[in-house]
């Protein structure tokens, strides 16, 4: 029993220590952004890698999620003669939940892993020490550009996933479910509002911050050797994905309280 409590206590203190580390890194990034001159070149490079190069993954994810959602809701709604409600249901689901969460998860997998692996390798090959030895802060040179690239890039990718999901849902509804396209768009516009788009985009800003800070923190604190880098990469993806799923619920509750549906 004592051993169980000891292990639980150890796990809890590890969790708190990780949380504290991520929070301190976030504060350092914000402080660095205001104290140091902005690193436009590095930030734009990261936006290209993180945003532009993630588009294919995000478009496919958004489109096929919208398509399958249209098929499933269409078949169910057909039973109660509510076929024309497919448009608003697909749109609300894509805007508020599916696009931000699935885009966040895909980017956590693709970009979070890449950041943790790159920074982890830099740590174990003493490249981080080399940066510091030249008077350059790794937070300034590495973490801040990745943070801002993600915070700007992920909402754009999420918007892209929203648009692709809704349009792909329309194509499926019109071609496979024989729903009149005019009803799809009309009902969708009638039952959705700017706040639905805003709800999704605000979530994506939070998700971007979680992915950037967790991946950078894991990379900066990777243990020695290939195994250490591998573990940091896996942990970055798992922790940021779980954080996205858990935070999604709380952000939704808070947002719905502030801006009622």
């Amino acid at each position: 029993m004592t051993a169980l409590f000891t292990r639980l206590w150890q796990a809890l203190s590890d969790l708190l220590s990780q949380f504290g580390g991520v929070l301190l890194l976030f504060l350092d990034v914000i402080a660095t952004t205001f104290i140091r001159r902005p690193r436009w070149k590095e930030t734009i490079e990261q936006m290209y890698k993180i945003g532009w190069q993630s588009q294919a993954v995000v478009i496919i994810t958004g489109a096929f999620t919208g398509m399958v959602f249209a098929v499933q809701t269409g078949l169910q709604f057909h039973k109660v003669k509510m076929d024309t409600a497919v448009g608003p249901v697909v749109a609300i689901a894509m805007l508020r939940e599916l696009a931000p969460v699935l885009t966040g998860l895909m980017v956590a997998g693709r970009v979070g892993a890449a950041i943790a692996a790159e920074l982890g390798t830099m740590k174990v090959t003493e490249q981080l020490d080399a940066l510091r030895s030249m008077g350059t802060s790794p937070t300034d040179y590495l973490a801040a550009p990745r943070f801002w690239a993600l915070v700007v890039g992920l909402p754009m990718l999420t918007a892209e996933a929203m648009a692709c999901g809704i349009f792909a849902g329309y194509l499926v509804a019109a071609s496979m479910l024989n729903i009149d396209g005019a009803y799809y768009w009309h009902n969708m516009l009638k039952f959705t509002a700017a706040k639905d788009v805003l709800a999704g985009l605000i979530k994506s800003v939070f998700f971007a911050a979680f992915i950037a800070m967790i991946a950078c923190h894991k990379g900066f604190h990777a243990d020695e050797g290939a195994e250490g880098v591998g573990r940091a990469t896996t942990e970055a993806v798992v922790v940021s994905s779980l954080t996205i799923l858990i935070a999604n619920f709380f952000i939704a509750v808070v947002f719905n309280t502030i801006v009622p549906i």
Partner: peptide
């Protein structure tokens, strides 16, 4: 505050630590 002190140093790391 260490940054200006570190600029007085040059450091050759064991594996050179060049940026890949």
């Amino acid at each position: 505050r260490l940054a200006p002190i570190r600029r007085k140093f040059g450091f050759l790391f064991q594996g050179a630590a060049l940026f890949d």
